[in-house]
Design a protein around this nucleic acid. Structure first.
Length: 582
DNA sequence: CCCATGACGAG
DNA sequence: AGCTCGTCATGGGT
């Protein structure tokens, strides 16, 4: 069947099934095989060469909510620049419901059907179990008699024929229905469903980000690396020489003695003891206090900076991740803990020294926006603490808190952060008591999460993400260890509810910017927890900046549990990332 | 060869 | 101060 006929037939079927904007349509496809679709009214299987083109046309004509199993679908669509507006990514929603990061089609299916993970079939077991001889075991059925998904279907068999594609799409729709049922059982079902939509869209954005990359200037980035690491060594021998040269700059401060490997923390510790610096570890912040004790300390700190650039952000990093003027890494919409976005290739921890190399392309600018004091504002929203909500009206919410507590702003800030992170020590202890007295609802919210965490119980973000607690594997009854583990879980749970909620809010903001930015051809090129960078044509920079603010208002309207909480963003139009005010 | 640890970059 | 992530190097196990 020609692609044009395929499109006609599919559109006719969608119309006949009364599928409209935002209605559910599950999809499975493979180029040169075809397309399988399913909706509430039924399913269709279409043989065609370019199913992505068909999907693109349907998106333009109808824009349903597309449903698929995993990221691979988003990757293929993004590859062809098909911008999907609404979707449902089963594995992304599974991470939301189940918690954690590690998952797979087979595991998600098993979990949704209360099947034990231990009984998961593998390809290798196929013949051992003699499944072919099993009565009623039809290889055209993706589900085995024992309830598990058939491994050969999961690993690609689902796309073996147009008929199988349709069957897979029907299965997808059923799985989504199961997920919807679970979301509906959460304390705030509508909100949880909306989180599922937003997280799925964020996963699609991640597919786009992985392809798009962050603009980076080749000459500039070379210059910066050369400054720290020296010129690119031609041979391994030359690299070795440079390494020795750097090491010598530190070692020359020492009397002759046993040889020291600066890359070995134990060696460094022994070396420092020889010059009367006794530290439990050799981390930079600890050595900071001993800077004046002996010149070798200063030299070591300088060495570490250069070593960082050389090893992590040096020529190897450049060759691996920077191509055609873009820095590209793998993006994931939720990590294993609280659900923040993650990126590889150093996109989330590019040292400040390298940011001048991140430059907009000719005729373009960056519109950069970062949320101000997002975590305490989110705490106000999720807890509903009226006093804290009042404080969010201020551009600097720590100021009214300080006034109310009768302490310096710096003390108030440390106390608020300490409350959200589970700080146990420090001089903010007094101010912490002040917080408990003046903001009991917010502090109660945090304490409730911490108590659950200490007890080993899972906690949930307001959007419904499950945050899994771990069990202490120590076999012996080690009271001390058990107490430490419980305390760590308490701190983790306390923070994860806020960090996770802030991540949910951020993603809603980001996906609104993505969809509203389409009209301006503005592309998101970086998401950094509370910061967004959009790459856009120079002439549209003002419109893009306005869009970032408007998107924030819309995100607040859509996401915020409290209408009264004020969210703020600092937006600037810049050429280089480094021009952003800290 | 895998895995834990230390160190450090960012938020 | 304490929370998260990814990355690199070392050293101790298999």
């Amino acid at each position: 069947m020609s692609d044009a006929t395929a499109l006609e037939e599919t559109l006719a079927w969608l119309r006949h099934s009364a599928v409209g904007r935002s209605d559910d349509v599950s999809v499975a496809f493979r180029p040169d095989t075809g397309l399988g679709l399913a909706c509430r009214a039924g399913h269709i299987s279409v043989r065609c060469g370019d199913p992505v083109a068909v999907i693109e046309q349907i998106e333009a004509a109808i824009a349903p909510r597309w449903m698929w199993w995993d990221r691979s679908t988003a990757d293929q669509l993004a590859e062809r620049s098909v911008g999907i507006a609404r979707c449902w990514d089963v594995l992304t929603v599974h991470r939301l419901l189940h918690g954690g990061w590690q998952t797979s089609t087979a595991r998600a299916w098993a979990w949704l059907h209360d099947l034990s993970i231990e009984s998961l079939p593998t390809m290798g077991q196929l013949n051992l179990l003699g499944s072919l001889s099993d009565e009623g075991d039809d290889p055209e059925n993706p589900v085995r008699p024992d309830g598990h998904l058939r491994p050969e279907w999961v690993t690609g068999g689902w796309a073996a024929s147009p008929e199988r594609l349709a069957r897979w799409a029907v299965l997808t729709l059923e799985v989504v229905e199961l997920q919807r049922t679970l979301l509906a059982k959460l304390p705030m079902p509508d909100r949880a469903t909306s989180t599922a939509h937003a997280e799925s869209a964020a996963e699609f954005l991640c597919a786009e980000l992985t392809l798009e990359g962050l603009p980076i200037d080749n000459d500039e980035v070379h210059r910066i690396i050369a400054e720290a690491a020296g010129p690119r060594p031609a041979t391994e021998l030359e690299a070795d020489g440079l390494r020795r040269q750097r090491d010598a700059e530190v070692l020359r401060h020492l009397d002759p003695g046993p040889s020291i490997d600066l890359r070995n923390p134990a060696d460094v510790k022994a070396m420092l003891r020889r010059v009367a610096v006794d530290v439990p570890d050799t981390r930079a912040w600890r050595l900071e206090q001993h800077r004046s004790t002996h010149p070798v300390v200063e030299a070591l700190l300088v060495w570490r900076k250069a070593e960082r650039i050389t090893t992590t952000y040096g020529y190897r990093w450049l060759d691996e991740h920077v191509h055609r003027g873009r820095l590209r890494g793998e993006w994931t919409s939720s990590d294993g803990a609280a659900g923040r976005m993650t990126a590889s290739a150093g996109l989330h921890n590019l040292p400040a020294e390298m940011r001048p190399a991140v430059i907009a392309e000719p005729g373009h600018v960056f519109v950069r926006a970062d949320l101000g004091q997002i975590e305490p504002r989110v705490l106000a929203a999720v807890s509903g603490d009226q006093a804290l909500i009042a404080a969010t009206q201020d551009d600097d919410l720590y100021q009214p808190i300080a006034t109310r507590l009768g302490v310096e702003r710096a003390i108030a800030k440390v106390a608020v952060l300490g409350a959200m992170y589970g700080s146990t020590t420090g001089e903010s202890a007094n101010a912490l008591r002040g917080l408990e007295h003046n903001y009991p609802t917010a502090m109660g919210y945090l304490e409730q999460a911490a108590a659950a965490g200490r007890a080993g119980e899972d906690v949930f973000t307001i959007g419904g993400r499950r945050i899994r607690m771990w069990v202490d594997e120590s076999i012996e009854a080690d009271i001390d260890r058990a107490r430490r583990v419980a305390a760590a879980r308490g701190r983790f749970a306390r923070n994860a509810t806020i960090q996770g909620a802030a991540a949910e809010f951020f993603k809603v903001w980001a996906i609104i910017v993505r969809s509203r930015g389409e009209a301006l051809d503005a592309r998101i090129v970086l998401c950094l927890h509370d910061e967004l960078i959009v790459h856009v044509g120079e002439s549209r920079s003002e419109q893009a900046a306005t869009l970032m603010h408007d998107a924030l208002s819309e995100a607040a309207y859509r996401w915020s549990p409290s209408r009264q909480v004020r969210y703020i963003a600092d937006v600037s139009v810049i050429q280089r990332w480094s021009q952003a005010k800290g």
